[in-house]
């Protein structure tokens, strides 16, 4: 099981990560996401409230999920990004494409 909790409400899914989004958890998470998206989920929300670390594989996963969602007509959001993660994604010009919003203290 992935290191996250999944809260489902009709077509919306809130994925709250228990910790960092890194290569360690990506394989499990990817499998989980794949299942969800094939089940007709339209809106995927990643909650990074507990996430301090994001690595290249993690970014890859977010992009891959976005790509998948686009293809299936769904939508992906990332919320509660830490200031550092938000700044990283912002500089990579990804905040708009990945729908990222920052953490509110």
């Amino acid at each position: 099981m992935a290191a996250c909790s999944v809260k489902r409400e009709q077509e919306d899914v809130l994925i709250r990560l228990d910790g960092n989004l890194t290569a360690l958890v990506v394989p499990d998470l990817q499998a989980e996401l794949k299942n969800l998206l094939t089940e007709g989920i339209r809106r995927l929300t990643f909650d990074l409230a507990e996430t301090a670390m994001l690595d290249s594989t993690g970014i890859g996963l977010l992009i891959a999920a976005t790509n998948t969602a686009m293809r299936t007509g769904g939508e992906l959001r990332v919320i509660n990004a830490s200031p550092e993660i938000f700044r990283l994604l912002q500089n990579m010009r990804l905040t708009a494409r990945l729908n990222v919003s920052a953490r509110v203290a």
Binding site: V26, P27, L33, T57, G60, I63, A64
Partner: peptide, 12 residues
């Protein structure tokens, strides 16, 4: 990067 259907992403 590919999609979730691809193997774990190895290019960004």
């Amino acid at each position: 990067v590919g999609t979730l259907d691809d193997p774990i992403c190895n290019r960004v």
